[in-house]
Lab assay of single mutants.
Amino acid sequence: MGSVRTNRYSIVSSEEDGMKLATMAVANGFGNGKSKVHTRQQCRSRFVKKDGHCNVQFINVGEKGQRYLADIFTTCVDIRWRWMLVIFCLAFVLSWLFFGCVFWLIALLHGDLDTDYKDDDDKSKVSKACVSEVNSFTAAFLFSIETQTTIGYGFRCVTDECPIAVFMVVFQSIVGCIIDAFIIGAVMAKMAKPKKRNETLVFSHNAVIAMRDGKLCLMWRVGNLRKSHLVEAHVRAQLLKSRITSEGEYIPLDQIDINVGFDSGIDRIFLVSPITIVHEIDEDSPLYDLSKQDIDNADFEIVVILEGMVEATAMTTQCRSSYLANEILWGHRYEPVLFEEKHYYKVDYSRFHKTYEVPNTPLCSARDLAEKKYILSNANSFCYENEVALTSKEEEEDSENGVPESTSTDSPPGIDLHNQASVPLEPRPLRRESEIGSRR
């Protein structure tokens, strides 16, 4: 089982795998120059863009038009607004034209077009017409509009002379109601789609790998820009990579689940303020055997998904993003964004995407760390350097704002901070800030 798991979770494809794949392509008759073999020097295209759209195009789909027309309502909801407006206008105009032609044909076959009612006051002739005051196609078209929109100006009306005319008036009224219901329903469904809710759900630009509770963890940050909550919010993550099976089958995008606390339930989050999602790199993680150097040379993509129900409509929305291997910062942490004021908490989104480097973060893999092949620094050293990194950030910001350097908390000259780390230190809580992250 261990060997199978290692093969499945191998992220960085070796040169031997690339040569094996190329040999397979030639042997199977696919070596026509169009096949692409992804190596370390040639990274694959992003499968999920940063804005959440999937970078996929469908080609050679059989009976595409028929399949889309069979699900016309979903098609109308998914198309762009400009095409929705075109369909909206065409549906009414074509129905008016169709029934206008029908009423014109009825008048033509009944002989109503030969009668001039402007110079004739004989009401008996008017009563013999199928539709009064309809003696041309324009008049028939206007009567069709008046019937379907129930305008009723009063000059044109159907008589009991022709039952077919009466039937067409009733039929057009029913068709008009159906068109109204369909168009209004599609427009309302399109307006109520929770897709735009994703514009106020954000992911951090970069993911980070750092120590948390004595273990290497992959972390990324999510935030909600609205005050309205995302009900039943939960997160998922998958690692996408290519691999070759033991039988020699090439899988271009193998999807591997990344555990973010599904078993323990901590994948469900209360997204009021930005939260750091934590994936513990343990023996079940696809990143277990990867060191910093392996991450730098790897070719994979981590897709992160945030799902929840919109509070206003109770409709489920899904926000997506992805991180390539070069977008994962090893040995970094996110800057705090949640600050405790006197009577409330304040979230500073200008710090949302910012990170700071944490010294002495192990550069080895989580496996080597678990097997004690890498000796961690003293816990006080880690905490102290973590505090120094934050303090230096604040000093830089104070210097930019014009604060005198004498007010900063610099260490005395001639003292090495790293050498001082081995000395037991008193706890130094942050002056006014605390970061709330997901705790395992």
Rank of each mutant, 00 (worst) to 15 (best):
Phe137His: 02
Ala314Pro: 06
Asn32Val: 12
Leu216Ile: 02
Ile79His: 07
Phe143His: 01
Ala129Phe: 12
Ala140Lys: 00
Cys162Glu: 01
Phe300Lys: 00
Thr313Ala: 08
Leu216Cys: 00
Gln42Ser: 08
Ser45Gly: 11
Tyr250Asp: 15
Met19Tyr: 06
Lys241Ile: 07
Glu335Trp: 02
Phe137Arg: 02
Glu133Gly: 10
Arg320Gly: 09
Glu341Tyr: 10
Asp267Cys: 05
Leu390His: 15
Glu301Leu: 02
Phe143Asn: 01
Ile244Val: 12
Ile258Met: 08
Asp116Ala: 15
Arg243Val: 10
Phe92Ser: 08
Trp83Met: 06
Thr361Ala: 11
Thr313Met: 11
Ser45Arg: 13
Leu85Trp: 06
Asp78Pro: 09
Lys190Glu: 06
Ser204Val: 02
Gly29Thr: 10
Arg46Leu: 00
Ala366His: 00
Thr147Gly: 03
Thr355Asp: 03
Asp368Cys: 05
Phe103Asn: 02
His418Asp: 11
Gly261Glu: 10
Tyr349Glu: 09
Gly111Lys: 03
Cys54Ala: 12
Asn32Glu: 15
Ile436Ala: 13
Ile436Cys: 13
Ala165Ile: 03
Phe382Leu: 13
Gly261Gln: 06
Val310Pro: 11
Cys43Gly: 13
Ile266Ala: 09
Val231Pro: 04
Phe382Trp: 06
Gly331Met: 02
Met191Arg: 10
Ile145Phe: 04
Cys54Glu: 15
Val37Leu: 10
Leu306Asn: 02
Asp348Met: 01
Glu397Asp: 09
Gly248Gln: 14
Val4Arg: 08
Met219Pro: 01
Ile59Leu: 14
Asp120Phe: 00
Phe382Ser: 08
Tyr9Pro: 15
Arg5Cys: 08
Ser242Ala: 12
Val347Ile: 11
Leu390Val: 15
Asn326Glu: 14
Val388Asn: 15
Glu280Gln: 11
Asp116Gly: 12
Ala389Pro: 14
Asp114Ala: 15
Glu394Leu: 06
Ser434Glu: 15
Val304Glu: 00
Val169Phe: 06
Val166Trp: 02
His53Gly: 11
Cys43Tyr: 08
Glu395Thr: 10
Asn259Tyr: 06
Glu301Phe: 01
Leu376Gln: 14
Leu218Thr: 02
Ile258Val: 05
Ile183Trp: 12
Lys50His: 06
Asn224Phe: 05
Leu363Trp: 07
Pro404Ser: 13
Glu385Pro: 00
Leu290Cys: 11
Thr245Ser: 10
Lys215Thr: 11
Glu247Asn: 09
Leu240Val: 10
Ala129Asn: 07
Lys227Glu: 05
Tyr323Cys: 06
Lys49Met: 06
Glu283Trp: 03
Val169Leu: 11
Arg268Cys: 10
Leu376Ser: 13
Arg67Gly: 07
Cys89Gln: 05
Arg44Ile: 10
Gln238Arg: 12
Gln318Leu: 10
Glu199Asp: 10
Leu324Pro: 02
Lys193Tyr: 07
Tyr250Met: 15
Ser95Leu: 15
Asn206Tyr: 12
Val126Asn: 04
Asp78Ile: 06
Lys20Gln: 12
Pro412Lys: 07
Val158Trp: 04
Ser132Lys: 04
Ser411Asn: 12
Leu113Asp: 00
Thr159Met: 02
Asn224Pro: 11
Ile436Lys: 08
Lys346Ile: 04
Leu417Asn: 14
Val131Phe: 06
Leu306Gln: 00
Phe167Gly: 08
His353Glu: 12
Asp51Asn: 09
Ala207Trp: 00
Pro412Arg: 10
Ile184Phe: 06
Thr147Trp: 03
Glu199Tyr: 10
His279Tyr: 01
Leu97Asp: 00
Ile164Leu: 13
Val403Arg: 13
Thr407Phe: 05
Val26Glu: 14
Asn380Arg: 09
Ile59Arg: 14
Thr74Gln: 12
Thr200Leu: 10
Glu247Asp: 09
Ser14Cys: 11
Lys196Ser: 10
Val260Glu: 00
Asn135Leu: 04
Gln255Leu: 11
Tyr153Glu: 04
Glu280Asn: 13
Phe137Leu: 06
Lys193Gln: 13
Asp294Gln: 10
Lys346Ala: 06
Leu271His: 05
Glu301Met: 01
Gln57Val: 06
Ser264Thr: 13
Glu335Ile: 06
Pro359Tyr: 04
Thr149Met: 05
Phe92Val: 14
Tyr250Arg: 14
Ser10Thr: 07
His279Glu: 01
Glu307Thr: 11
Ile209Trp: 00
Pro412His: 10
Leu94Asp: 01
Gly100Ser: 04
Asn401Ser: 09
Gln57Arg: 13
Ser381Met: 05
Gln255Tyr: 08
Val202Cys: 11
Cys364His: 06
Trp83Ser: 10
Gln41Phe: 06
Asn378Phe: 04
Ser381Lys: 05
Phe382His: 06
Ile281Cys: 01
Lys241Asp: 07
Pro412Trp: 06
Thr409Glu: 14
Pro274Gly: 12
Arg40Tyr: 10
Val158Phe: 02
Val304Tyr: 05
Ala210Val: 09
Met309Ile: 04
Thr149Glu: 05
Lys354Phe: 08
Ser95Thr: 15
Ile415Asn: 13
Ile178Ala: 11
Asp257Ile: 04
Val169Gln: 03
Lys372Tyr: 10
Glu400Asn: 06
Phe300Gln: 00
Val4Leu: 09
Glu400Leu: 09
Trp104Lys: 01
Ala192Lys: 04
Ala186Asp: 14
Ile266Met: 12
Cys383Ile: 14
Asp71Gln: 15
Leu85Asp: 02
Ile415Gly: 14
Leu105Trp: 06
Val4Trp: 03
Ala139Ile: 00
Leu105Asn: 05
His205Ile: 04
Asn7Met: 06
Asn206Asp: 10
Leu21His: 12
Pro404Asn: 13
Asn259Trp: 03
Thr74Tyr: 10
Pro359Arg: 05
Val37Gln: 09
Ala189Met: 14
Ile79Gly: 06
Cys43His: 09
Val423Cys: 14
